[in-house]
Design a protein around this nucleic acid. Structure first.
Length: 490
RNA sequence: CGGGGUGUAGCGCAGUCCGGUUAGCGCACCUGCUUUGGGAGCAGGGGGUCGGGAGUUCGAAUCUCUCCACCCCGACCA
């Protein structure tokens, strides 16, 4: 058991916070609600970015960059959009400081902005204002743009990675000639997110649409992926919105079609954020610390030497460097932990805390026998492997660990997903064994609201292709044709 | 933003109620020696705006006011 790490079953949120900090992923900063992402944590984010960026480009998107500031007036152009974000905006009102008579630095009241600038909470408005100039003809469409950026949402309560005032994300903003094409894009991108979650994060996700209440401000349809965390709460891991012609109308973005007729452009937007870091931590980690899927681990293999003398270390180091070179040639990231200041046991514990998938140890015995001790982070199994086979073994093992992590998460989700048809059981499950609940719903916002108020559970999503079956709404008893997915959520 | 809690060395804490030597302890850090197959031992050493500001007092980590930050529970949200 890791020293000083709170157990997940004793206090889940404390366990989470400790992993984030002890594994050197991030820490709180001097600014309320804003975190410092530390190098180890940031390198995981960089890996996520690289993979996602590649997937966006494969699907025809290009990167661009739009301003951090948005004129206040832009927000009022789309009614539901402003309503959704107004309560959590940072506003820039002045552009100068001065030293007052007491030598204090104060805001120079004479330097007041004519129109306040909003620090973007999301970029639909500034982007659609720009698209107006870019789009004239159907030949300019589709316009497939993504931007990597930081955004600010002034949340009341923040948590490292899960909800910070400033966060990093990507936001795709596409423009299309037809509704059908925009809908295809919306679904395509939620598919990209789901593939990324399953294959890279190793997190199984459900795909579906949000209810009207939970929909993005300004969207006509919101697709989402939802994942289950180890405390039985759901986490929205990515969203893709069909914005219809709402923003085109708000910003007057029209194009001439082949028949020389003016039409409004159809829009989508989609995003994932550093919240994925939170998902990654909460989905896989254990009481020994972080567990990273090999595909996203900054260090895939760590090598710890065991020695008694400098001569012994030199001998071992030569063999280690030899293997490290071969591993790097296969694009496997290796860390040789030859610090003399720490003993092996300390290093073992530390690299487990940091989630490194594979640990190799080599001491005099292994050196003499031409072997390596191989330990996996996901299930703690140890094996002695001959030097001749070590390269192939590691390659296979990395694949195996990636799969095993995903499988474990999938098993967990299966064991914590319940079909419930009785209201009392519904409430009881949420209190005693939270997880996903598949239940019938009458399709009304009133019922959704009442269920939320009485149980804290929300409809996470409406399945894309629901299994049709006759049933009765868990709350109202009214008829329903399929089940929706309920859970308590982050 | 409402309720509760916390803030003393890099980390974890004692001291605060009841003001009074030079503010302690453990881990970490530095030096040396011995060690090294699951979080080493001994010896020596360095490090403090007691969260910030103002006030009460001969004297404040301790009392008062105020501001800030963090944690937990709600409401809001990715």
């Amino acid at each position: 058991m890791a020293k000083g790490l709170t157990k997940m079953e004793d206090n889940y949120s404390q366990w989470y916070n400790e992993i984030v900090m002890k594994a050197d992923l991030a820490e709180n900063s001097a600014v309320r609600g804003c975190m410092v992402i530390k190098p180890y944590g940031y390198s995981i984010w960089e890996k996520m970015q690289a993979v996602l960026d590649g997937m966006f480009k494969e699907t025809g998107h290009e990167n661009a960059y739009f301003p951090l500031f948005i004129p206040k007036s832009f927000f009022s152009k789309e009614a539901s959009h402003v309503e959704g974000f107004a309560k959590e905006c940072a506003v820039v009102t002045h552009y100068r400081l001065k030293t007052d008579e007491n030598g204090e630095i104060v805001v120079d009241e004479t330097a007041k902005l004519e129109e306040e600038l909003i620090v973007r909470p999301t970029s639909e408005t500034i982007i659609w204002n720009t698209y107006k100039n870019w789009i004239n003809s159907y030949r300019d469409l589709p316009l497939l743009i993504n931007q990597w950026a930081n955004v600010v949402r002034w949340e009341m309560r923040t948590r490292l990675f899960l909800r910070t005032t400033e966060f990093l994300w990507q936001e795709g903003h596409t423009a299309h000639a037809t509704k059908e094409e925009a809908l295809v894009e919306t679904k395509k991108m939620i598919g990209v997110y789901a593939k990324f979650a399953e294959e890279y994060l190793g997190i199984p996700v459900h795909i579906g649409t949000k209810t009207e209440k939970e929909r993005f401000a300004g969207a006509e349809e919101t697709y989402c992926i939802e994942a289950l965390m180890q405390d039985g709460k759901a986490l929205q891991a990515g969203t893709s919105h069909f914005l219809a012609q709402n923003f085109a109308k708000a910003f007057d973005v029209k194009f001439l079609n082949k028949d020389n007729k003016e039409e409004y452009v159809w829009a989508t937007s989609w995003g994932v954020s550093t919240r994925l870091m939170g998902a990654l931590i909460m989905a896989h980690s254990d009481n020994n610390g972080l567990v990273l899927p090999p595909k996203l681990a900054p260090i895939q293999v760590v090598i710890v030497p065991i020695y008694k003398s400098v001569e012994e270390l030199d001998m071992i180091s030569e063999r280690v460097e030899n293997l490290a070179k071969k591993l790097r040639a296969q694009n496997i990231t290796v860390k040789y932990d030859n610090r003399d200041s720490q003993r092996p046991g300390f290093k073992f514990a530390e690299w487990e805390l940091k989630g490194v998938p594979i640990r190799l140890a080599i001491g005099p015995k292994d050196y003499a026998n031409n072997t390596w001790e191989v330990a996996r982070r996901d299930n703690f199994e140890k094996q002695i492997i001959a030097d001749d086979n070590i390269l192939e073994h590691i390659k296979t093992l990395l694949v195996e660990i990636q799969e095993n992590i995903h499988q474990k998460a999938l098993n967990f989700r299966t064991q914590n997903t319940y079909k419930v048809d009785d209201w009392e059981e519904f409430k009881n499950k949420l209190e005693t064994k939270p997880g996903f609940i598949e239940a019938h719903w009458d399709g009304t916002s009133e019922t959704e609201e009442k269920i939320k108020n009485e149980t804290k559970a929300t409809i996470r999503l409406i399945p894309v292709n629901p299994v049709l079956e006759q049933g009765k709404c868990i709350y109202s008893g009214k008829p329903s044709n399929f089940r929706v997915l309920f859970a308590k959520s982050y």
